[in-house]
């Protein structure tokens, strides 16, 4: 059983809060003390997972950006169209980065939208998806949103479950299908229990994406008043919108 002091020591090691001598002492203990090595390796693997998650989120962000660029037709890539789109405050994420306004709803959407993690049936590396449900969830996890949309939609028809609807809504948001996403989250909020607050959070992001700031505010205020983990994010976003 690891002692509190050992945990603290390992944490300090990875947080770079030890001197060179102290670090050397930690490495000596890792080499000699099996229990301490276990604790050390555990911390290392946890930080590895955290970094993996961060990289994956940024990769998803770049993929979304790429699909938005891809959605432009060749004709629309002309200089004139590009800036016309910007002037119209279009829905393309690319515009978000050109329009450098900190409280721009599009930019806020981009900063705050992170796809809901597949906590329902996480894919285990090395195992193949054998059921339509596992395949759909795997496509979602791998960021293959076009495939995920098709499979989740079919799955929802057969098995109308809240978790399927949650991932489907997120998939539609990723693909820029805002109306479909909005409908998914409204259904999730009204007809099911358990995922109400996350559904409201994503619904508020749909409104933000559309530029319907007042609708987004109303929902965010509702979330802010809850004790859910989304409350702090809602508060932060509200402050930026005000």
């Amino acid at each position: 059983m690891a002692t509190e002091n050992d945990i603290l020591l390992v944490e300090k090691y990875f947080d770079d809060e030890l001197t060179a001598v102290e670090k050397e002492q930690v490495m000596q203990r890792v080499a000699m003390d099996v229990q301490f090595k276990t604790l050390f390796d555990q911390e290392k693997v946890l930080i590895r997972a955290i970094r993996h998650q961060g990289l994956r989120e940024n990769l998803t962000f770049l993929k979304t950006l790429e699909s938005n660029i891809d959605q432009q037709t060749p004709a629309s890539r002309s200089f004139k169209w590009y800036y016309l789109a910007a002037a119209l405050a279009g829905t393309l994420a690319i515009v978000t980065f050109l329009v450098n306004r900190p409280d721009d709803p599009q930019q806020l959407f981009q900063s705050y939208f992170k796809p809901y993690p597949n906590v329902f049936e996480p894919t285990v590396r090395g195992t193949e998806a054998t059921t339509p449900r596992a395949e759909a969830f795997q496509a979602y996890e791998q960021g293959d949103y076009a495939k995920a949309a098709e499979q989740l939609e079919a799955l929802y028809v057969q098995h109308p479950e809240p978790e399927v609807l949650m991932l489907l809504g997120n998939t539609n948001l990723m693909l820029g299908h805002i109306t479909e996403a909005e409908n998914n989250f409204i259904t999730l909020n009204h007809e099911y229990d358990g995922l109400d607050v996350p559904a409201q959070w994503y619904l508020s992001l749909c409104y933000l994406k559309r530029g319907e700031v007042q609708h987004a505010r109303t929902l965010l205020k509702k979330i802010e008043g809850t004790e859910n983990s989304y409350a702090s994010k809602a508060k932060e976003l509200l402050e930026k919108l005000n």
């Binding site: 940024n58 962000f61 770049l62 950006l65 660029i69 980065f97 900063s111």
Partner: peptide, 9 residues
């Protein structure tokens, strides 16, 4: 992420 997007494009 905004800066990441700018560099990407």
């Amino acid at each position: 992420q905004a800066e990441l997007g700018v560099i990407y494009e």
